[in-house]
Every structure is written in C-alpha cells, then in structure tokens.
C-alpha cells in the first residue's frame, strides 16, 4: 500500500526525551536516551526483550520514574508533581499489552470514566464520544457488555477506544498485539493502521514488522537500554547498519 512517509505539516516537536537514564536497583535499563518525536510522526520501537523499549515509552507518561534526564511532552516538562503528571497523561494515551480494561465497568463505562472523572466532561457528551470511538473500532454493539464477555481482540480495540476518548495528542502502544491469539492480531492492527493514516502521533513497541513497513515514519532499534539504530523503514529493513540489528532482523523476519 502506498502511503507518504513524511508528514507535510509543521516540525512541531511533541515529545522530547533527552539524556534519559533509568535504573531498576542496580540494573541500568535506559542509557542516555535521546528522542524527538514530531507531531504526526509514527514511530515503531523494536528490540529484544529486556532492551528497555517498554520502559522507555512508560517513562513518557510517567508510569515509570526515571533518575536522570528530561522529558518534555507538548511543552510540559515532566516532574513528579502529580498535577503535572495528570496534565501530561491527559495528552498521552496508552494501550497496554494486557488490555487492562476495568472489569467491573461496562465497555461504555470503561470509555467514559476517564472523560467524566479525568477531563470533567459532561456525562452525556462523554457517552456520545465513547459511542463515536466504539464505532470507529467496530464494536458499538458491545457497549453494554463487560470486558470479560469479549474476546482479546475486541478488548484491545475497546482499550484503544478508551484512550482515544481522552483526545490524546500522542498514543503509546506497549506491545498491543503480543497477548492476542494470532487470528485476532489483524483486527487490532487494522485499527492502528487507520489511526496512523489519520495523522495520529504514535509510538508503538511492537514486533509486527509488517505494521512497521506499512505505516512507520521511523523504526528505532533498541538493545541493552540504548538506541542502537534508527532509520526510515525501507532503509532499516533493507540496509541495517549495526551488527546487532542485522542479527535481530535475521531472527524475526
């Protein structure tokens, strides 16, 4: 499928990570990470497990604390002040590997809780918006069911709708298809492709290289807490520079 890899509009930097360092106890999991994400850019982060890719995107909405460095989201510098954290989280949506839907709330309520309690939106408006996004992910008919009644693929699509309801400027995907049965991967990826084509700024940790080839503007390869290599997808896949990248691509492609 043909799709322009460079966004035509501004070079407005929406996420800026500089000299980020993080330790889990003695383990140095992120080493001097520098990353700038331009509005509308779609980035795929790949790498072996334990390379720090999930930790990196979890730092962006402060689900993980970091010890050194700076992260700026939409002009707001992250600190551990909870007001700032909540402000940043309003602008950054997150989709988890394990869906993490609220089991005691219906699909519709899952999508409205954040809007009503986090964004202080009116209940009716929140419902309308929730239905709009549930239609977008093709499951409006499940609105009154509970997460436990849905398949994994459906649950992950709800999780995407739940995030979109917050009108985020950036979406983070943390291995969104890794916990799914193979036949459900496509229905989730299709939604993500649609989102990408609408110009959503996305950072996806994923092993779906087909997705990377189709929509990514940039592929980042991480290993042992460092960004080893980054490039646009065609170059990344056809002409990897680093030995570690070549080995990785050989194993997964």
């Amino acid at each position: 499928m043909e799709y322009p890899h460079k966004k035509e509009n501004s070079d407005q930097i929406i996420v800026s990570v500089s000299s980020l360092n993080k330790w889990f106890g003695d383990l140095h999991v992120l080493k001097d990470i520098d990353l700038e994400v331009v509005k509308g850019e779609r980035i795929v982060i790949a790498g072996p497990s334990g390379s720090g890719k999930s930790t990196l995107i979890r730092c962006i909405n402060f689900l993980e604390k970091f010890q050194q460095g700076e992260i700026i989201v939409n002009g707001v510098t992250l600190t551990d002040d909870h007001k700032i954290i909540e402000e940043v989280r309003r602008e950054v949506g997150m989709v988890f590997q394990g869906f993490n839907l609220f089991p005691h709330l219906t699909i519709l309520e899952n999508c409205t809780l954040g809007q009503v309690q986090g964004l202080k939106l009116d209940k009716e408006k929140a419902k309308q918006k929730a239905m709009h996004f549930l239609e977008k992910v093709n499951i409006p008919e499940q609105a009154n069911k509970y997460p436990g009644q849905l398949s994994g693929g459906q649950q992950q699509r709800v999780a995407i709708a739940r995030s979109l309801c917050m009108n985020p400027d950036v979406m983070l995907f943390d291995e969104p298809t890794s916990a799914l049965d193979p036949e459900m991967v496509k229905e989730v990826l299709d939604i993500m492709v649609d989102l990408a084509k609408e110009g959503m700024t996305m950072l996806c940790v994923t092993h779906e290289m087909g997705f990377a080839k189709e929509v990514a503007d940039r592929v980042i390869f991480m290993d042992k807490g460092q960004i080893v290599e980054q490039n646009e997808p065609v170059e990344f896949f056809n002409n990897p520079q680093h030995e570690r990248t070549k080995l990785f691509l050989k194993q997964i492609l």
């Binding site: 909405n61 689900l63 909540e86 989280r89 309003r90 950054v92 949506g93 997150m94 988890f96 993490n100 839907l101 609220f102 089991p103 809780l113 954040g114 309690q117 986090g118 964004l119 739940r162 995030s163 309801c165 917050m166």
Partner: peptide, 10 residues
C-alpha cells in the same frame, strides 16, 4: 488496573 486508571488521567 491502577496504571490503566492513571493513563486515563485519574
């Protein structure tokens, strides 16, 4: 689930 709540700005 706490993380999911946090991610929708609760």
């Amino acid at each position: 689930l706490e993380e999911a709540g946090a991610s929708v700005s609760l």
